[in-house]
Design a protein around this nucleic acid. Structure first.
Lengths: 217, 217
DNA sequence: TCTCCTGAAATCGTATACATTATTGGGATT
DNA sequence: AATCCCAATAATGTATACGATTTCAGGAGA
């Protein structure tokens, strides 16, 4: 959630990045306890930077702390997933509306290129990265760095669930069709249409993920 | 930004709360360096919980870290204030829209009571608390705890600037008129009107605060 | 079977030491 | 006099060791 940490590569930041990736890839599963001594040993650091890394991840919502019992990988209930999507819709819609008038031809071409790459991508992790890049490309001209950080945080929270979900379904095809509708509306400068397509895009993803998590329960 | 820490009263949380209050009240001013040893001594704790408190405040945007130079009370540029208000509008509008259909008579009465208290309140700190309570009362029925946390975080970021600004102006009267318009629209269940009044309310506050900070520069 | 107790394990916090990085202030040089 | 360099200082960032507290599991006893 921080904005200005420059190129800080403190131990805590490095560990947070590593843990974030592991949570994201599902190596560390939801609900799994994160033992401080074990992790400190694994990364070859003391408990101080490790705890600070966990605090950072707690702020991002990826880790939950239970007093005197330590940290676990945060688990999201279907309700929480729905809430996060609700927030994503509010923030991403606002970002997109502000960005559309400032979109350049280069931005649109970049979006198109990313969609083409998405069509080719088989690896789910990279697919999800590209998916974020597409969205970020459309929001970036709004020139609101904090807003982008917050949206990315929300995105990261859902990402790990989305990945396990995507593995079994052909969600990607539908998603790509929606992406193209959004991009097309952006090209026309049609804010209302782009906003509508984006909201549909996120709402459908939300509904499918919530349904998936509910039945998995 | 955390959601579930129960009633955790760890040292770090207690210190974070104390520092938050001091920043908020202007005892710790923007840009002021936060020396770890000094603060640790002042609170009678070691550096570990103190650093964790600073990390927590960093996540909330109240503190900025400069690598190897420590922490300072975060400073907001006019652009950043505008951005935060932009995010507030997006999130609070969404919250209000979802809450209005669920508002009970008790909620509306509570809002009315808070407005009456606001009319009487002279102390700026308490006025700001009540101001938040009013907004929170209207959003709470949306039953979205994370959303509420995020809105509160944004609110806290601007609060300390708003307080110094309010001190010199009679912003409160205009604000109260807008509050009453919002509440009235909520009573009628008129989502569009309530949304419009809320957006105006926040936009006007944003414009005045940005103008104030720009000329103070 | 239920309750209570005990002990292991983990967290939380303190104290201390040390390496690294910034900062500063006083010369030395131009 | 102004600038640059450099050493002294100060603060951060991290490691290590230790003690206190809490949680939790499992066994003893009724």
């Amino acid at each position: 959630m921080s904005v200005n940490q420059e190129n800080s590569l403190s131990s805590a930041d490095a560990i947070a990045r590593a843990l974030r990736a592991e949570i994201w890839q599902g190596i560390l599963k939801s609900g799994q306890p994160l033992r401080q001594d074990e992790l400190a040993g694994r990364f070859g650091v003391s408990k101080i930077p490790l705890r600070e890394a966990l605090f950072q991840l707690k702020a991002e919502g990826l880790v939950a702390f239970y007093p005197n019992r330590g940290a676990v990988v945060a688990e999201l209930s279907p309700d929480e997933v729905e809430e996060i999507y609700f927030m994503r819709i509010a923030l991403e819609d606002a970002a997109l509306r502000r960005a559309i008038p400032k979109l350049t031809v280069a931005d649109l071409l970049r979006g198109e290129q990313i969609l083409a790459d998405l069509d080719q991508e088989q690896n789910i992790g990279r697919w999800s990265d590209l998916n974020w890049e597409f969205h970020a490309t459309l929001y970036a001209p709004a020139k609101m760095p904090r807003l982008m950080e917050w949206i990315k945080t929300l995105h990261n929270n859902i990402g790990r669930y989305l990945i396990t979900y995507l593995a079994g379904m052909d969600y990607q095809r539908a998603s790509q069709a929606e992406h193209r509708q959004i991009l097309e509306a952006c090209r026309r400068g049609d804010i209302q249409a782009a906003s509508g397509h984006l909201q549909t895009h996120l709402r459908l993803a939300s509904e499918q993920l919530v349904a998936f998590l509910s039945q998995r329960r």
